[in-house]
């Protein structure tokens, strides 16, 4: 099993061959930009005098299955406050947490397919878990609406146009339950859904659409889903390994 991160290009062929075989060239010229950074590696590729390469959409999963573009932008803005960009590295927005959230809400999980959803629904004691009839996908959209409504009420602007400090205050009020109930649901429940999904979106395997380029993992020096750590766990010194996604287990 490979102990070091290997870019797909290095696996059994040269980077150039990979590019040629994968069809990611235009007229025999290797494209830079997003693709270049995707592949990484130190190998130099001959470049010719050409105009700056156009940006390619390299990740077809960076598109919406569930949200409208407006809902997506609002989710991006809210998730960014949960997990903001800082000196450590990118925040939820750059890590595509909102893409992750979109995909999750479109999945069977979004319609609570593995939860017990039979009636009757009663008000629960704190020790009994949530007892709500509203599906996750619907609760999330209702919560987004409430975010905007509350922002409008407090600051005369939609959430997305607020200053970061104002956005934090709005989210704090949601988290503390200071906001009117959302179709009968207490606001901390929506907040907790947003928080959980954001954390998942920055740290789940990139196959789910977030944790872009595994940068969520890289920030905390998490090596991803490698196959063995027999050597590392015995060492006193910290061993930093570049992250690997589940994709590296394909074909085994």
């Amino acid at each position: 099993m490979a102990e070091d991160a290997k870019s797909p290009a290095k696996k059994g062929s040269t980077r150039r061959e990979f590019l040629r075989n994968s069809g990611l060239t235009v007229g025999g010229v290797v494209l830079g930009g997003a693709l270049g950074s995707l592949l990484g590696g130190k190998e130099q590729v001959a470049t010719h005098d050409v105009a700056p390469a156009p940006q390619l959409t390299v990740n077809p999963a960076e598109a919406l299955q569930f949200f409208t573009p407006d809902q997506y932008r609002l989710t991006q803005a809210a998730a960014e406050r949960i997990y903001p960009k800082d000196d450590n590295g990118p925040g939820a927005m750059e890590l595509n947490a909102a893409i992750y959230i979109d995909h999750q809400l479109a999945s069977p999980w979004g319609i609570n397919s593995k939860e017990y959803m039979a009636a009757p629904f009663f008000e629960a004691e704190e020790t009994q878990g949530s007892q709500i009839r509203i599906l996750r996908k619907d609760l999330f959209l209702l919560g987004l609406k409430a975010l905007d409504a509350y922002s409008q009420k407090q600051y005369d602007n939609p959430f997305i146009d607020l200053e970061p400090e104002q956005q934090d205050q709005v989210l704090t009020d949601f988290s503390d339950g200071k906001v009117p109930d959302i179709s009968g649901v207490k606001s901390p429940l929506f907040f907790s859904l947003l928080r959980t999904l954001t954390i998942e979106g920055v740290y789940a395997d990139p196959l789910y659409g977030g944790n872009k380029n595994m940068e969520g993992w890289a920030m905390r020096k998490y090596p991803g889903s490698r196959m063995a750590y027999v050597k590392e766990i015995q060492q006193d010194k910290f061993v930093e390994l570049p992250p690997q996604g589940l994709n590296s287990h394909m074909g085994h």
Partner: peptide, 16 residues
């Protein structure tokens, strides 16, 4: 705090 700037930096700082 359980979220936001301080949460992010502290959770990363102590992650290992």
């Amino acid at each position: 705090p359980a979220w936001g700037a301080e949460f992010k930096s502290q959770s990363i700082k102590y992650s290992n």
